[in-house]
């Protein structure tokens, strides 16, 4: 697996974790836990965004990575 592929895998698992956190935030009734999950989901989202940029850069530098 090339680095770009690996980064994309990480990106995918982060996205899944982010979705899970949002589900937890919606399903819990406890206010404190809700806030915690929402905050974590936001942090994860920002990391996902940054990683997405990095993947974009990689694809520009090495067009052969594109699409993996």
């Amino acid at each position: 697996m090339t680095i770009a592929q690996q980064v994309k895998t990480t990106l995918a698992s982060l996205k899944s974790a982010q979705a899970n956190l949002e589900t937890f935030a919606l399903s819990t009734q406890n206010k404190q836990a809700k806030q915690m999950y929402t905050q974590a989901a936001q942090t994860t989202q920002s990391v996902v965004d940054q990683l997405q940029q990095r993947v974009g850069q990689m694809e520009q530098q090495e067009p052969t990575y594109k699409g993996f």
């Binding site: 990480t10 982060l14 899944s16």
Partner: peptide, 12 residues
């Protein structure tokens, strides 16, 4: 979810 996050962190 906890394990996924841990793994992503290690990957980074």
């Amino acid at each position: 979810t906890y394990a996924t996050l841990k793994k992503a962190q290690a990957d980074l």
